[in-house]
Design a protein around this nucleic acid. Structure first.
Lengths: 225, 225
DNA sequence: ATACAAATTTAGGCATTCCTAAATGTTTGC
DNA sequence: GCAAACATTTAGGAATGCCTAAATTTGTAT
C-alpha cells in the first residue's frame, strides 16, 4: 500500500513539516494541536500511531515532540506538491484569484491521484512556483533549499525578491496584492523595523509600499538576490 | 448546514437514485449493499440514519426498501452533476480518455465545492452531456427525463441516437469506442437479438458495428429520434 | 396452509479520530 | 532547590461506518 494515509495523517505530516521549519527541529504536541485545531490528546494518539509500524513517518519521544523521518518528509512533501499544484491550477485554468485557492486546495490535496497530479503538472508546464511564490516539491517528494529571510528581519538597504507570503489569510493577501507585494517582485527594504512601526519597501524602483506592520512583515519571505 | 453529507452518505444516495431507475421504485438493501460493496447490515444502519432527522433524504420501511425524498433526489443529483462535470473536465481540459475518468470522478465528486462546480461548468460552457453521453443535472439538482430504450431491446429497423453507455467498465468502453458506438452517434439497429447472439447496428449509414453481445448491448441506451 | 429459502434486521464488535477531565511530567522564576 | 505554571499524556468515552453471526420477516412452492 504505497498510497496509504488518511486525510488526518496527511494533515499531521504537513503540520509537522511546516512546524519543523528549515532546521528540522521537533514539532511539539501543542503547536500541532493548535495548527490543526484539534485537542492535544488527539495529537498524542496520532503521533504514537505515526511513529509505529514497519515504516514510521515520525520519530517521537514522549514530552519532546515529533520529527519527520525521511519517509515522513517525502510523504509530507508530496501532499504539499499536490496542494501547490492545485492552487496554481485553480488560478491559471479556472480563474481563481490567489486569495481564494488555499481553502479549496486544502480539501482537494488529499484526493489527487498520482495520475491527476502528473496531468495537472504537465498542463501547467511543470511549474516551479505556486501562486504565492512557494516552491513546488518534486513528484518524488524532494525540495532543495534556498536562502530566505523574513521581511521583518531584512536590514535596511537589502535588495531581494519576494519569495513567498503566507497563504492562510485572504484579507492579508488582498492587502499585499493591492500594495504590489507579490511573489517574484524585486524590492529594496528602506527601513528596518523589527518590532514596531512601519517597514517601508521600494518595489522595483517604481512603487513604494508603506505601513507594512510587523505582523504582515513576518508573513513575507524574501529571497536574497 | 446545507452541505452536510459525508462521502458515505453521498454514495448511498447515488446508489439509491440509480437503483430506483426511471420509475422511482424502491431500492432494496441487498441491491444497495451489492452496488456499494458493503454488507447488508451496514445498509440497514445507514438507511435508518438517512430516513430520520428533520429533513430525511429517504423514506424507508423495514423489509421494503428505500426511496429518495425530494430532498434526497436533489442531493443525489447534485453529486451526479459533480461526477459528470468532473468527468468531462478531465477529458476536455486534462486530456483523459473517456475510459479513465470514472474512477477519478468517483473520488473527487465528494469534494467539489459549489464554487468549484460553477467554475468547472463555466469553463466547459455549461455543458449538457458528459463524455459518456449522460445528461448533466442542473445545479439545483434537477434533470428532466427523455425517452430512452436499451440497445438490447430496440427492434430491428429502429433508428436512434446513442444516449449513453455505462461508464463502469473501461474494457467495454474501449471496445465500444473501437467499433464507433459512442454517445450522440446516430445509428440504425439491423437485427434484434434480445437474449443471445450478436446485435448488429449500422452507424449513421457509414460504418457497421458487429458482434454486440447482449451484455454489451444492455450497457448502451438509445434515445429515439 | 406451511415450511423452506431468500432477504433483511438485530446484536455485538472493531477501527478511526475526535473529545473532556484528570494525572503526570517538564521548565522556570526566585 | 522547589513550587507554580505550563506542556503533555493517560483514562474514558462519543460518533461514523464498517464487519460477522444470529435472529427474524417475507414470499413462494408445494
Amino acid at each position: 500500500m504505497p498510497n496509504s494515509g488518511s486525510e488526518s495523517v496527511d494533515d499531521y505530516l504537513k503540520a509537522i513539516l511546516e512546524l519543523s521549519g528549515p532546521t528540522g527541529g521537533p514539532a511539539t504536541s501543542n503547536r500541532i494541536a493548535q495548527r490543526l485545531g484539534v485537542s492535544a490528546p488527539s495529537v498524542t494518539g496520532m503521533l504514537r500511531k505515526l511513529s509505529t509500524g514497519n515504516r514510521p513517518c515520525v520519530t517521537y519521544q514522549k514530552h519532546h515532540g515529533a520529527r519527520l523521518t525521511n519517509e515522513g518528509r517525502r510523504r509530507a512533501l508530496r501532499i504539499v506538491r499536490r496542494h501547490r499544484l492545485v492552487e496554481l491550477f485553480l488560478c491559471e485554468v479556472l480563474g481563481y484569484s490567489w486569495d481564494e485557492v488555499h481553502e479549496e486546495a486544502e480539501r482537494l490535496e488529499h484526493f489527487i491521484s498520482g495520475k491527476l497530479e502528473e496531468r495537472i503538472a504537465r498542463k501547467l508546464g511543470n511549474p516551479e512556483f505556486d501562486p504565492h511564490g512557494d516552491r513546488i516539491p518534486s513528484k518524488h517528494g524532494t525540495l532543495p533549499k534556498r536562502k530566505t529571510v523574513r521581511l521583518s528581519e531584512a536590514p535596511a538597504g537589502q535588495t531581494a525578491v519576494v519569495s513567498s507570503v503566507s497563504d492562510r489569510d485572504p484579507e492579508m493577501l488582498r492587502y499585499l496584492q493591492r500594495i504590489g507585494l507579490v511573489p517574484n517582485r524585486r524590492l529594496t527594504v528602506l527601513e528596518h523595523a523589527p518590532f514596531e512601526g512601519p517597514t517601508m519597501v521600494r518595489l522595483h524602483g517604481e512603487r513604494q509600499s508603506r505601513g507594512i506592520s510587523p505582523k504582515l512583515a513576518r508573513a513575507v519571505l524574501l529571497q536574497e538576490i
